[in-house]
Design a protein around this nucleic acid. Structure first.
Lengths: 233, 233
DNA sequence: AGAGTAAATTGGTAGTACCAATTTATTAAC
DNA sequence: GTTAATAAATTGGTACTACCAATTTACTCT
């Protein structure tokens, strides 16, 4: 007899999550109007009150903007309060290079910690994302940003440090939603991607081999490569 | 004739502001239940819908917590979304050690960057905070957390990286507001503080000497010392 | 005194009506 | 045919009412 406690889920929270997912997946683009409350309520078979509550939550978080008489619009990523990096990038003359510099500090350290702590499931996740990247490159000249992010998030999870995981998640949300177009060149440059894939494999090998210093150096090589790639553009 | 445009103010926003003010002024203490929605609606002569909207906004921001059947309560300061680290520390079993591990990544990297980029004003700021710590220890057995934070922030400013500066600011806000009591032991332990002061001086010397690897290693020594200090408790 | 039940209290959901702001469509005047 | 004014439609905002869901309190029975 294996009974698990049932946690009731508020309707407005479920609406919130669905709409948030649509935004994060890019179904509703930045600046685009989403469906009106009445329409969402009918489509989801809930009351307009619940929809309105969910939308208000997304407005408070900065993902959406209300305009009475017009509709509800997706905010530009820079205005999102949920992501501290957006705030940093919006208020100052911050650049992609600045962000990569911070990554250098965070991710090299993370790789070293991962080499000390990775569980088999972590290693499996890293290998899976490497496999996805290989599959992509076998049939196309590009890889999905999701596979790249998944690799780095797998390394973060392997650190078992919740603060670091949270920060890394913010990073990848921001990188791939906020400034995705800046990264497009590299994600469609076959030679660059082969190098990236090689770096990922080197990081993975070092982590699997429980070698923190090698993992640190491999990740450093990787991020330095990305930095140099964008510094040339 | 001086006519100013009249900007209509949403009722729910006015409720939001009034309640937020009461919380920030301490009329409702952390953990305390605020007035029920129905009561607030009657007191403010508005509909419960508007009150509920305002409360939901404060809940989303983390200042309040709903509990169906009980009431609405003021969150503890650690849970406030104004600081992203608070969110990371609240949702998981995160520890001070986790936070120090992340600092290891960020701040060693920052020290190396500072050694490459520090201006005279940056060096002056570091020296000033070291001076304040020395003054404190000359007359008392403790130092102010502000002087310690000021040193680390001076190093961050010396990196000239706005993203890093922003993240570091969040760190020190959180460290000294969120979990200040955990740090008290060290800030009143004379021997520990003498070591910390020595570490700061070593970091400063390396930065002033434009030696990134020495700065990195000195900062690493410092944070490792703090980690070990708290791991013994 | 303890257990069970009922009532009260609180936030959550739903539906309806209307208001406020904006946009679109229609009509009237030139 | 064009422009301006008016009406209608669309969208979010407010209000009200009724009921549901979760928790606490009060009452009754053993």
């Amino acid at each position: 007899m294996n009974l698990k406690p049932i946690k009731p889920k508020r309707i407005s929270d479920q609406v919130f999550e669905q709409v948030r997912e649509l935004i994060l997946k890019g179904e509703f683009k930045s600046g685009q109007q989403i469906l009106p409350e009445r329409e969402l309520a009918v489509s989801m078979a809930v009351s307009r009150t619940s929809v309105s509550n969910a939308i208000n939550k997304l407005v408070t978080m900065g993902l959406l903007e209300h305009r009475q008489g017009q509709g509800t619009f997706v905010s530009s990523p820079d205005n999102r309060n949920g992501n501290p990096l957006a705030a940093a990038m919006a208020t100052d003359e911050a650049t992609l290079d600045d962000l990569l510099e911070v990554r250098m500090g965070l991710e090299c350290n993370a790789a070293a910690l991962a080499a000390q702590r990775a569980a088999d499931t972590d290693l499996t996740m890293m290998l899976k994302s490497i496999g996805e990247m290989e599959d992509d490159l076998a049939t196309t000249d590009r890889i999905s940003t999701e596979a790249d992010a998944a690799f780095h998030m797998a390394v973060a999870f392997a650190t078992k440090n919740p603060v670091l995981i949270h920060l890394m998640r913010n990073f990848y949300d921001f990188l791939f939603i906020g400034i995705k177009k800046n990264l497009t060149h590299m994600y469609m440059d076959r030679n660059a991607l082969l190098s990236v894939l090689g770096h990922h494999k080197a990081v993975y090998q070092a982590i699997r081999g429980r070698e923190p210093e090698e993992a640190y150096t491999a990740m450093r090589t990787h991020i330095q490569y990305v930095q140099d790639y964008f510094r040339k553009r």
